[in-house]
Design a protein around this nucleic acid. Structure first.
Lengths: 334, 334
DNA sequence: CTGTTAGCGCCTTCAC
DNA sequence: GTGAAGGCGCTAACAG
């Protein structure tokens, strides 16, 4: 590994000149520049990032925390982030928290150790206070989530409104016994979706039956298991609103296994519109989020925070879409 | 942001002592230690990683390159990697290449800039020569892939043998017109799987029909599109061996859409055994790789390379499993 | 336009 | 058991 001194010596210039040529942000005579470039070439020189980062007190890196790598929803969000990061010369440091608060803290520690310039949290597990405190010291943006009562920059859809809309769709189809498969309740957007579900029931005067509300972990498996439980109820639900598509897919599996049919016996609505939701049978009615835009916007926001460019609005709420496919049909009672 | 000097001053010791207390690898009097720890606490001090990395000439970070974030196959591999990395105090730097050679080179550049101590490539796109050259300078391990004729450390299943086994399964069911949906042919493991397919045909004296061989990009969509093409052939295949489960799922969709049935009209075998392969109807017959172990072993290997611990064997080939579900059935011709 | 100099924050000798 | 000093490789300020 050669360093800047080696290059300087070979090119017969000072290290400062080498640095200038490489940064390309300062006038250097063409002749000198070429000599430096040749030296760089022949030594196969790559500047040491650690040294540069230390000196410049920036890393051009943003940590992006994901709750779960295998959730295809995020891959599209990430694409949006990557595209703007690349354009601005930034790298993503993808952190997989596996839904574990400790893992989340690990990465936050890395941020404090200045291994990155900023942080994007998608579906945070740590508490509101911790987030608030961190946000005061560091460029931090919430993606997919909205932290009520704070001014923390975030970009998401209206999870409450979307859930209300999904539930209302089921109600409009004639359903009264509508179950809700929630995600982990310590996640804000899960509580939001649950609240949207409850709001819809209330507004239509449908009594809430707590036995119809179950919390899973966003996995196909948990959707499957919880639906089996729901189906074994004395008065089983005629519809299920799941907080994500995976759980909805698990629910479909359980309904089919019980020799019942979707949507005739049980209508199902998911959330996220992941690719497989069009393949599964019946195809899933679901809420579609502008995934790419969420990612793009979130990254634009952190980069602005990092560069101390004022952000016009701190809280961006993007429109969602209800995509109607076959998993709801028309309820017999209509 | 406070630094080590601030801590030293507050504790009334030298920076060397602070460093020793924090590293905890050198005798320091208990009394002094406590004073330092208190100072660290009250200043909320976090050591600057860039400075430490520069000084120690190591980052305790391994870059892991993934061709595609949304492929659930890798999430399990990553879990294996994360578990051993965490145990040894290392971080993963996940790099999503989106199947793009340029993106791959970007991350390799980061390695050369010493932003990480080692690299794990899963399904590399760059050429054999580049990999070989890099491997001479840096700790590098191939996961899921095997680079023939080299001594580069790698851990994978026998892709050729597995593909042969999958194809033989179809042949044993009586199929003679067996199509192959390959992945991108610049990926080694795709060529391997294709070769296994060809070997199986040859060994059973079945002529190769090039019109039955198509190359996709591992996506559901490409599996769907290519299968439509295959089904429109004058003499359409009675079976399809897809190089991964996603393409197999796309194939199932296309077959159903053509009002044909799986497995009666077209039998289908996938590869990877992703979670959804049990949900899809019919459930997919597929090859299962020991995903977690692959990840775990690959990480153990790079860490040993990094620490210059001699590795017993450079090339690890792990056993795969053929999982028989409903997508093959028994061919009518049997 | 180019060179000299002084750190960035940390760890690691080498003294004592 | 502790401190002083030097330097990892780079960039930025200041001269010239």
């Amino acid at each position: 590994m050669s360093n800047i001194k080696d290059v300087a010596k070979l090119a017969g210039v000072s290290t400062a000149t080498v640095s200038r040529v490489l940064a390309n942000n300062y006038p250097v005579a063409n002749k000198t520049k070429n000599r430096v470039l040749e030296a760089v070439q022949s030594l196969n020189y790559e500047p040491n990032r650690m040294a540069r980062n230390l000196r410049k007190r920036e890393t051009k890196t943003v940590i992006v925390l994901l709750p779960d790598l295998k959730n295809p929803f995020f891959s599209e969000v990430i694409r949006g982030m990557e595209d703007v990061a690349a354009r601005e010369g930034y790298h993503l440091f993808l952190g997989n928290t596996n839904n574990d608060v400790e893992r989340e803290r690990e990465y936050i520690k890395m941020l404090n150790e200045q291994m990155a310039d900023g942080l994007i949290l998608t579906t945070a597990r740590i508490g509101k206070d911790d987030i608030l405190q961190l946000s005061e010291k560091k460029p931090l943006v919430l993606a997919c989530e909205y932290l009520e009562g704070t001014d923390i920059p975030c970009v998401s859809i209206d999870n409450i409104g979307s859930a209300r809309r999904a539930t209302n769709h089921l109600i409009s189809l004639g359903h009264k016994r509508i179950a809700h498969l929630s995600g982990p309740i310590n996640v804000v957007l899960c509580r939001d979706r649950m609240n949207g579900y409850l709001q819809a029931l209330h507004s239509k005067g449908i009594p809430v039956d707590e036995s119809l509300m179950e919390a899973g972990d966003f996995s196909i498996d948990s959707g499957y298991l919880l639906t089996r439980k729901l189906l074994s109820l004395e008065r089983r639900p005629t519809a299920i609103f799941a907080a994500n598509d995976e759980m909805a897919i698990g629910a479909i599996k359980a309904v089919k296994e019980a020799k019942l049919s979707v949507p005739e016996d049980v209508a199902i609505v998911g959330f996220d519109n992941i690719p497989i939701s069009t393949i599964i049978e019946p195809a899933l009615t679901t809420i579609s989020q502008p995934k790419y835009i969420i990612g793009k916007t979130a990254m634009e926001m952190v980069l602005n925070l990092i560069k101390k460019v004022p952000i016009p609005r701190h809280q961006m709420v993007l429109p969602e879409e209800l995509i109607i496919r076959e998993s709801c049909g028309v309820h017999a009672a209509l």
